[in-house]
Nucleic acid binder design. Structure first.
Lengths: 215, 215
DNA sequence: TGGCTAACTTACCTACTGGTAAGTAGCCGA
DNA sequence: TCGGCTACTTACCAGTAGGTAAGTTAGCCA
């Protein structure tokens, strides 16, 4: 399969390398980075291990590429939420929906999974991982702070702390929900979290938001 | 080292087997269950791999023993919290402190770590893991429900859901805090969570609890 | 004192791990 | 048409994984 005629559009070949990343990503999100081998990917794509090493000389290269691509996609999704211009609480719901979608595909957040394996990862992967969480938290904190200022969200303390707490809680909820094979567990926990950020109503209660399916 | 004269007290030998579990536990909590091998334990204890296989024929046996012992210790700690007879919010703080202590030792919760690796674990370990989370959630739900009835805690919805959400959030907060090598991140997130369960005061705000060190 | 058992060790096995070296097939631009 | 490049393959490799078989040693009990 020698570069399938490089199609019409862009420059990069958009082929084997991407397929490798797709498979590796799925394996990493379900079994962990230490839970799959080059041989697993090779078997699935019906190529040789050596061909994988051509694209990603050592496994750390593969891991870094995985985090980078995941981070870019995630960033793009956040950009879309931004662009929607909806109220902050709705944007927060969309943010949570990102996690729900991943879990419903039987996966964990790639970076949550890698965080568990953190101590076994080479330093470049550790750095990339922290970068992902930093970007994520920065975006969330910005949303939350502006939401609070607009009176659309309510919480106390620094927005960065609230953002970190929310991300952490979502990562943990994915972990536990998958152990029970029950994504609904995640949705329930996530709803509860979101409710805590809804602004108080006149009677002093917090607004109860959509009990049903969003989106 | 043939059964060190079976000492004075109890029946089991309280020796190599326990040392093996100690080392395996630490490795599992730092590197994950797939992140260490029999050889790692053997090297550290200066015994042969085969001797480990004598105590735990296959790795799944070791894993199950790990979860069982961890669950018993955790259960005992919960029993002590129960027995303290302190107000529910204080008990909740003690519960959180259990997690803080683990993290400060550079470790993750054993079962949180195993939850990440869930899909790679043999069925007996998966069952044992769900058992741990069930027990944990049942204890927490009981505490929270009775705390709510006593007016010492405030939250809405089923106590079991609140319990699941709290445990999930703590597990996730450990994960992220360790990636940053910064246990304070965990403490901050945990404080925020606890605050959400404190009963409302007359002025409609939630009581701000001890910003400093508990315990 | 002689056999039984617990707790090992020595020596080995197969499968798989990440990784490499050297070759090759097809395209592409000069 | 020829050299060079990309994207592979074949054929390896050493190290490590989990696991086993068979022996050894020391205490314990009858």
């Amino acid at each position: 399969m020698p570069t399938p005629t490089r199609a019409s559009a862009a420059k990069p070949t958009l082929s084997t390398r991407d397929h490798v990343l797709d498979v590796a990503e799925r394996l990493a999100q379900t079994r962990g980075f230490n839970g799959f081998s080059y041989a697993d990917i090779a078997a699935e794509l019906k190529v040789t291990k050596a061909s994988l090493h051509y694209h990603f000389p050592i496994k750390t290269d593969l891991g870094c590429a995985l985090i980078e691509r995941y981070g870019q996609r995630f960033g793009a999704a956040l950009g879309q939420i931004d662009a929607s211009g909806r109220p902050a609480l709705r944007q927060l719901e969309s943010y949570v929906q990102l996690y729900t979608d991943v879990l419903q595909g039987g996966r964990l957040c790639l970076c949550g999974m890698l965080a568990a394996e953190f101590m076994t990862l080479a330093e470049p992967m550790q750095r990339a991982l922290r970068g992902f969480f930093n970007d994520n938290e920065a975006w969330l904190a910005r949303l939350m702070e502006s939401g609070r200022q607009a009176g659309e969200l309510s919480f106390d303390g620094p927005a960065a702390e609230a953002a970190n707490a929310l991300t952490s809680a979502l990562e943990g909820a994915m972990l536990l929900a998958r152990s029970y094979g029950d994504p609904a567990r995640f949705v329930t926990a996530a709803d509860r979290l979101l409710r805590a950020f809804a602004p108080a109503t006149k009677d002093g209660n917090r607004r109860r938001h959509s009990a049903g399916r969003r989106r």
